[in-house]
Every structure is written in structure tokens, then in C-alpha cells.
């Protein structure tokens, strides 16, 4: 079993929780702009949904969900820590999580479309 799906879920969850955290009223006032609140909020849920779909399609309902919850726990822990002690880092985490998550997701999709793709 490869670690790529789980890594993808971790990165997507990090990006998702960063979005949702930035969308909270306090952070929206201080870190972004109130008009970003709704897009961040819905973007966060969209990313969470993507992570969940990745989990269930790659791992099935049992291990997939177990993996997803593990990833969510880790991501929430990191995001809350960052929001408390280095709130400025949330934006960086969001960008990094998005890029990394999208890259791994692309990798997964490619290998699903062409199983013999040389990885």
C-alpha cells in the first residue's frame, strides 16, 4: 500500500483547515479581508470533501475513513497550533497544502488513468 493517497489527504486537510480557520470572524478581520470569508469557508469545505473522496476511493470505507480521520486530526492539530502562535503562517500553509495536495492528487489520477505510468 503506497503512502501517496494518505499524504494527499494530509495536505488537502491542512489546506482545508487553513481556509476554514482564516474564514473565522477574528482571523478574517486580522489576516485577510471580510469579503474573503465566504470563498474561504466554501473553499475549505470543498477541500475537505476532496480529501474525503480521495480517502474513500483509494482506501474503501473502512481503512479509507480511518486514514481520513487520522489526517484530519493531524491537520487540525497543526492548524490550531499555527493559528495560536503564528497566525501569519496560515496563508503559507494554505498555499503549500493546496499545491502539494493538487500535485499528489494529479499523480493519483494519472496512475488511475494509466496504471502502467512509470512511477
Amino acid at each position: 500500500m503506497t503512502a501517496v493517497p494518505l499524504l494527499a489527504q494530509c495536505l488537502l486537510s491542512l489546506a482545508a483547515f487553513s481556509c476554514l480557520c482564516l474564514a473565522t470572524p477574528r482571523n478574517a478581520r486580522q489576516l485577510s479581508h471580510p469579503r474573503w470569508r465566504a470563498p474561504l469557508y466554501w473553499g475549505g469545505w470543498l477541500l475537505l470533501g476532496t480529501a474525503a473522496i480521495t480517502a474513500v476511493t483509494t482506501g474503501g470505507w473502512g481503512p479509507g475513513l480511518a486514514a481520513l480521520f487520522g489526517a484530519l486530526t493531524l491537520a487540525a492539530f497543526i492548524v490550531i497550533g499555527l493559528a495560536t502562535y503564528r497566525p501569519g503562517g496560515l496563508v503559507h500553509l494554505l498555499v503549500a497544502g493546496m499545491i502539494g495536495g493538487a500535485w499528489l492528487l494529479g499523480k493519483l489520477l494519472l496512475s488511475a488513468a494509466a496504471p502502467d505510468f512509470p512511477y
Binding site: G62, P63, A67
Partner: peptide, 26 residues
């Protein structure tokens, strides 16, 4: 069997095992 499997996490590959460990610590 599924619940006990989830409890023991014997199926878990390394990264997953670390997440179990982290969850336990938390």
C-alpha cells in the same frame, strides 16, 4: 472483526501507524 481491526490498527501502513500513534498521544 472490523471494529477490532480498527482498534488494533494492525492493517496500518507506516504513515497511518504514525497517525494512530499521534491520535493516541492526543
Amino acid at each position: 472483526d472490523v471494529f477490532i481491526g480498527l482498534h488494533e490498527g494492525l492493517f496500518a501502513p507506516p504513515l497511518m501507524r504514525w497517525l494512530y500513534f499521534l491520535s493516541g498521544l492526543l
